[in-house]
Nucleic acid binder design. Structure first.
Lengths: 111, 111
DNA sequence: TCAAATATATAATATTCTTATGTATATTTG
DNA sequence: CAAATATACATAAGAATATTATATATTTGA
């Protein structure tokens, strides 16, 4: 089962940030594969969603990039900036809090 | 603290459906107020997001509507259809599953 | 050798929300 | 009793973001 895209939309950036926090340095394709593996295929990030998000994070100064060549193939690594580390903590805390609220909402029993 | 709008986007319809499941019959304004109360003001649905969503649910046959007059003021009640009840269960299950996956992702510890 | 996997990127389109606006009635407070 | 606030629905213009498709190129394995 794949999750509906609306669900992923709201959490996409937080997922990216969390992975960068744990792995220090990652490239786009690696992020899609890691998310796919960690979620047993339930979350499959598409390029059309991932790259614009990564570029936005870069423009906001949340991540910095380095380009490397693996043979002749280009690879762009993303790393959290100092500001990005702070931002990441905030986003993760917000998501944890949000999930607690949602859990409460979904737990409400019929009268 | 208010949650960022992206987070709410993904779960808006599921929240509406869950409330309709528990309360049988609700009108738009009532939904905004109930969500606000249940979340201690952390989720504040705007009309611009709520009404288009409700109209979409109606167009999809997930909810049916009845209009009533309270004095001279109009009030539009929304109720889950039979198909809507099934759909609601699916959406709730999906969200619960998704939150478990997110919890797992967020729990990953540094190596 | 050729298909699949690896790897990044963008453009056109679609979707959906934000913000603002509009309409109208009802209630509370100074 | 006037003004402010709350109730109640709705839509439109613009913004933001994702989907889908496309483009390019290398590497690996059957």
């Amino acid at each position: 089962m794949l999750y509906s895209s609306e669900l992923i939309k709201g959490t996409l950036k937080t997922i990216i940030l969390k992975l960068l926090k744990e792995n220090k340095r990652m490239y786009g394709y690696e992020i899609t594969q890691t998310v796919k593996e960690l979620t047993n295929g339930k979350i499959q990030l598409t390029e059309g969603a991932l790259y614009p998000s990564l570029h936005a994070l870069e423009a906001e100064g949340i991540v910095t990039t380095e380009t490397e060549y693996i043979g002749k193939r280009v690879r762009k690594y993303y790393t959290l900036s100092a500001a990005g580390k702070t931002h990441t903590k905030e986003k993760i805390n917000e998501l944890v809090d949000f999930m607690e609220t949602m859990r409460f909402l979904l737990d409400i029993k019929p009268a």
